[in-house]
Amino acid sequence: MSDFNYEFVGGDGKVYGPFTAAQLEGLVVQGRAMETSQARIAGSGQWQTVDVLLASFRADAASTGEGETSSSPLGNPSQLSDQFKNWVGDSGQKASTGSSLGQAPRPSTSTSRPVAAHQEGGNTTLAMLSMIFGILSVTVGWLLCCMPGILGLPAVVTGHISLSQNRSKPTVYGGVGMAKAGLVLGYISLLFTVGLWITAILAPDSDISSIDGTRFGQWVDEPAPDFSVTTLDGKEVTLSDLRGRRVIVDFWATWCPPCIKEIPHFIRLAKEHDPIELTIIGISDEPESKLRQFAQKEGINYLIASDELNFAPYNKITGIPTTFFIDVDGVIRDIHVGYMNYNDIRAAVFP
């Protein structure tokens, strides 16, 4: 075999080659490539130690009756790349062996350690981070307002960087399996998050009178059953005490994209109207601590309560957001399931 078809990892962690088997063996003899250095057939993904690779070559050559002939252990030195010549001239391996391209070869004193495959480097920091972010994205990510993609993005970024480092310096950077796991989990989280938001944006408005009349229809134009809830600021609010003002009761959750999309409309209405004229109450069954954190982040300026009303018609809710519009006499004038834009909300409040 006279073609250059072998490459190996130098002491500086870079991959050099290609070399013929004769050239590679000559470098080992002169001590510039260790028998325990990682090597492979150029372009393949399987790494082995130099001694194992050369032994395989000799065995194949013996079985076929072929072999390489060269007047120099290095083949033709003029064919070596300038980059490799510079490396073998400056590396610490040359200093330790006292040999050069012009000196007589001397046997290597290294001990052969057959290794079946390439051993990864020990630096797995980014690979580990990718896997951790990936795991968090499909677990803790759900606590961030239905946004697993928040943690999925860094999982993807660190995973790609880790794999790139491993390809360029395989003996320095490892953790390929962890990086790939992080990438898979990260991409799943990103795609799922994007899908949720696209669904929320494209989902058509749904009016209760057309899609859910059998569940809530009997409550329209009927007095709203009274209830009391404790808001995040510790005040108890009773629906019957709000007679004389219009009331919006919105059943929602922090993990619900359509609910989140409606919040700016409620904030705007709360700014435009005095609480004596219009009171907005958002009710979720999530913990107060989570609701408080979310409300502060979004700048919610209307009443928020953590509660679960287990009586009709409030216990008939199976989809959110579900919004009750109650007039000044405490009568339910409309019930809407699904997202509503600002103009539709205002029209339902002030028909």
Results as ranks from 00 to 15, higher is better:
residue 2 S to T: 04
residue 3 D to T: 09
residue 4 F to I: 11
residue 5 N to D: 14
residue 6 Y to L: 15
residue 7 E to Q: 12
residue 11 G to P: 08
residue 11 G to L: 11
residue 24 L to G: 06
residue 26 G to P: 01
residue 33 A to H: 01
residue 34 M to E: 10
residue 38 Q to E: 12
residue 43 G to C: 11
residue 43 G to W: 07
residue 45 G to H: 13
residue 49 T to N: 13
residue 49 T to G: 12
residue 51 D to H: 12
residue 54 L to N: 03
residue 54 L to A: 08
residue 55 A to T: 13
residue 55 A to F: 08
residue 60 D to G: 13
residue 60 D to I: 05
residue 65 G to W: 00
residue 67 G to W: 10
residue 78 S to K: 03
residue 81 S to M: 08
residue 91 S to T: 15
residue 91 S to W: 01
residue 93 Q to E: 13
residue 93 Q to P: 10
residue 99 S to I: 00
residue 100 S to A: 11
residue 109 T to R: 11
residue 111 T to R: 11
residue 116 A to L: 10
residue 120 E to L: 04
residue 127 A to S: 15
residue 131 M to P: 02
residue 134 G to W: 09
residue 150 I to Q: 04
residue 153 L to V: 12
residue 157 V to H: 03
residue 158 T to Q: 02
residue 159 G to T: 02
residue 162 S to C: 04
residue 170 P to E: 12
residue 173 Y to N: 09
residue 195 G to V: 06
residue 196 L to K: 07
residue 203 A to C: 01
residue 205 D to I: 11
residue 211 I to H: 07
residue 213 G to P: 02
residue 213 G to E: 09
residue 215 R to I: 12
residue 220 V to T: 13
residue 221 D to G: 07
residue 223 P to G: 08
residue 226 D to H: 11
residue 227 F to L: 10
residue 229 V to C: 02
residue 231 T to Y: 02
residue 231 T to P: 02
residue 233 D to I: 03
residue 235 K to W: 01
residue 239 L to R: 05
residue 242 L to K: 02
residue 243 R to M: 06
residue 254 T to I: 05
residue 256 C to W: 00
residue 259 C to E: 04
residue 263 I to R: 02
residue 268 R to C: 01
residue 279 T to I: 04
residue 290 K to R: 15
residue 293 Q to A: 07
residue 295 A to F: 01
residue 298 E to K: 13
residue 301 N to Q: 08
residue 305 A to D: 03
residue 310 N to D: 13
residue 318 T to Q: 14
residue 324 F to P: 00
residue 324 F to D: 10
residue 326 I to Y: 01
residue 326 I to R: 06
residue 328 V to Y: 04
residue 329 D to W: 00
residue 330 G to R: 04
residue 334 D to R: 08
residue 336 H to C: 03
residue 340 M to V: 04
residue 341 N to H: 12
residue 344 D to C: 13
residue 348 A to I: 05
